[in-house]
Nucleic acid binder design. Structure first.
Length: 163
DNA sequence: AATCTGATTGTTCAC
DNA sequence: GTGAACAATCAGATT
């Protein structure tokens, strides 16, 4: 079977979770795609590429995974949790998703900062383009780090009434 | 050995 | 505005 089954998920007959979004194929550049573990060293082209913040669904999944595995220690398939999580997620009400969304929202705020830094880097990179060898990365952060900037305040906003 | 896949949804980036 | 890709996970599958 040569793996790579074009669409393993699309097997719906009685259950049709999603139309046909072909989502599994994130792309195959040639090397690791998104494994979070770029230890091999060469998977990530960018030194500090900010990983996308987990969506509310992922946040929920993190918690769900624990519960799911706890009650299903035998299940070791990621797809199992994914499916179960997906169904449960849709089963949640806006109010229940609220906390997850709130967290996701914060993640996004943080991500925005990373993006700014990342963008800045890209800008510098483009300057040299092929000369990334670097040589010149002398002061990458000459004006940073000083201990002047800090921000850490959890803002919890709650105004949800919903049904 | 190391990389890749599956499966979910949401978000984010690029054009 | 739309599309495409990717975020975690974990163990198997593949190269």
């Amino acid at each position: 079977m040569k793996g790579a089954k074009g669409k393993g998920a699309a097997k719906k007959d009685s259950l049709k979770p999603v139309d046909d979004k072909k989502v599994g194929k994130r792309k195959a550049p040639a090397k690791a795609v998104g494994k979070s573990k770029a230890k091999a060293g060469k998977a990530a082209k960018d030194p500090n590429k900010p990983k996308r913040p987990p969506s509310a669904f992922f946040v929920f999944l993190e918690d769900f995974r624990k519960t799911f595995k706890k009650e299903n220690p035998n299940v070791k398939a990621v797809s199992a949790v994914g499916k179960a999580g997906g169904e449960k997620w849709k089963s949640l009400s806006a109010a229940e998703k609220a906390p997850y969304e709130a967290k996701a929202a914060k993640r996004k705020t943080d991500y925005e900062k990373l993006m700014t830094a990342y963008n800045k880097k890209q800008e510098s990179m483009v300057e040299d383009e092929e000369s990334e060898k670097s040589k010149s990365e002398v002061d990458e952060e000459s004006g940073q780090e000083g201990g002047d900037d800090e921000e850490d305040e959890e803002e919890e906003d709650d105004e949800e009434d919903d049904d």
